[in-house]
Each structure stands twice: as C-alpha cells, then as structure tokens.
C-alpha cells in the first residue's frame, strides 16, 4: 500500500464519527430490502436473454432459464451481418455522435457554468434564469420549431443536427453550476493574485475540484446520446444510428422476440461500462480535492 493510500484510508476511517451499531443495522436492512427490489427486474431482463425462444412464453415466467442458451446472441449477430448497410457504419455513427456530443456538452457546459457560478458580471442572473426556466419547458412541443430551425440552417440530414443541440444541454449546465458554487472564492482569488488567468484557473483549479460533477454528467450524456434512435432530422441510411438500425431488425414479430431480449442487454453494455468507470473514479476522488473553506 502506498503512503498516499494509507493517508486516504485514515481519512475515510476518521470520517465515521457519530455512528451507532443499531443505526448501522437499520441502514443495512433498509439498503438490502430496497436493493433486492431494484435488482429483480434487471436480473430478469438479463436472464431472459439466455432463454431459448420457447421458454420466453412459459407462464409463470421462471426467474432463471431452465436450459440457458446463447442462441439469442448468435441469432442477433447473424442478423446484424446480413443487413444492407454494414452494421459497422451504424455503430460508427452512434459512437461518433456519442463521443463528440459528450465532450462538447461537458466542455461547453462547464465553461458557461464557471462565470455563472463565480463571476458577478452584468447579465449573469438574467442568463441563468433563462437557462433554468428552459429546463422546465416540455420538449414534446419544441420538435417542430427545432426542425424548422434545422431547415433554415441547412443542417437536415447531417451529423451536427444531432450533435450540436446536445451540446447546449441545460441540465448539464445547471449540474456544473451547482457544484462550482461550492468552490471557495478565496481559492480563486489567491490564484488571481498569483497571476493566473481565468482560462488557467478554470482548467487547473475549477475543473479538478468539480470532478465528481463532470464524471456524473458524462454518464447522463453518454446514456442519452447512445440511445438516440430514429430521428426526423436524418433520412440517409448512411447517417442513421445504431439503435435505429437495431429496432428495425427486431421489429420482425414474435420470431425475433428472442433476439430482442439480447438487444436489450447489448444496448445496455456501453452506458453500463461508462457508468462503472466513472463511478469508481468519483469515489476515488473523495477527500483529495484540495483546500476548502
């Protein structure tokens, strides 16, 4: 164990003052019961993907397959290989949109959040109110105006029609701003006195301190963009996304019901991996984020 780790362990231990055994027991029981309740449907979805087709229709449905099989997965890959546009093309589109969109959303959102949280410039409150209230307006009725704007810009049937709007995520900005508010002003002031410019302060002090925030934002962003399916803005087959292609394939009726259980699991893998990587990073950053007031 390195020295740094030892210090960290020590801090973790010291953090647990004010804890009684009875209280610990209640907390443990609560978490356990609720955890089982949350897990059942997910376990069920995964186990379903290993059931042979005929077992999917048994009533009452067994929690675990009687004769586990991989045929749903092999069937899926067979179908993926036989489509007109190669599957790798759809996959590339989705990966491209997810990566560029997520990076853009995190960087632009954080950049905007920093002055909104920490600089008292004229118009600050007004800009934030505008963004905050837009968060509460239902997206269901804005799709037609959005489409008209895309037509005006000539962006229909392009990548940027899917990527750029995602970069203006109001939720992401609000998330970053809330975390940045906890950064002590004294720290930023000290950096300014030392001669650091705002750009440097933002990258070297602010962003490292709100690491849990942007790691969380990455999860939301990837989850949203990865699952982006058919869009009214895209009509070329070459530009369509993976989820779109896959829903096309599994909408082939009961015969493809087995394959669709495999799709449910397969689509979860990427957001799930991102989730686990970022979460373990968030938890590692604990109590190492530097000076606090």
């Amino acid at each position: 164990m390195t020295k740094e780790n030892k210090v960290k362990r020590h801090l973790l231990k010291r953090a647990k003052v004010n804890r009684s055994h009875a209280g610990n027991f209640v907390v443990f029981a609560f978490i356990f019961v609720l955890g089982v309740f949350m897990a059942i449907p997910l376990v069920y979805a995964i186990s379903n993907s290993f059931k042979p087709l005929d077992e999917l229709w048994i009533f009452p449905p067994p929690l675990f397959p009687n004769q586990p099989t991989l045929e749903n997965y092999t069937g899926l890959f067979g179908l993926l290989g036989s489509s007109w546009v190669p599957m790798s093309r759809y996959l590339f589109n989705t990966i491209f949109i997810t990566v560029v969109g997520t990076v853009g959303q995190v960087v632009l959102g954080s950049m905007c959040a920093y002055p909104l949280a920490k600089h008292d410039f004229p118009g600050n409150k007004f800009i934030f109110k505008l963004i905050f209230f837009s968060l509460m307006f239902s997206g269901a009725v804005t799709s037609i105006p959005s489409y008209l704007i895309m037509v005006e810009l000539g962006w229909v049937d392009t990548y940027q029609a899917l990527i750029v709007p995602a970069m203006g995520s109001t939720m992401g900005l609000y998330l970053m701003k809330q975390f940045m508010e906890q950064i002590p002003n004294a720290l930023l002031e000290a950096a300014r006195i030392d001669g650091a410019g705002e750009w440097r302060i933002f990258w070297r002090i602010v962003m490292p301190m709100v690491k849990p925030a942007w790691l969380t934002l990455i999860v939301f962003s990837v989850q949203g963009l990865w699952n982006m399916g058919a869009s009214t803005l895209i009509y070329s087959e070459q530009l369509k996304t993976f989820p779109y292609a896959i829903t096309q394939i599994i909408s082939g009726g009961i015969a493809r019901a087995g394959v669709s259980t495999a799709v449910t699991v397969l689509m979860m893998i990427v957001p799930l991996t991102v989730f686990i990587i970022t979460q373990s990073n968030i938890i590692e950053t604990m109590s190492t984020s530097g000076v606090k007031e």
């Binding site: 950049m111 905007c112 909104l116 800009i127 704007i149 970069m167 203006g168 900005l173």
Partner: peptide, 16 residues
Amino acid sequence: FVAPFLLIFLTFTFLP
C-alpha cells in the same frame, strides 16, 4: 466563457 454555450442554447433550446 459563456458565449459558445449560450449561442447553442439560444438557437436550439430557447428559440424553439
């Protein structure tokens, strides 16, 4: 700092 996000926000969220 605010400008790039604000431009995208105004065009694709606020305007609609």
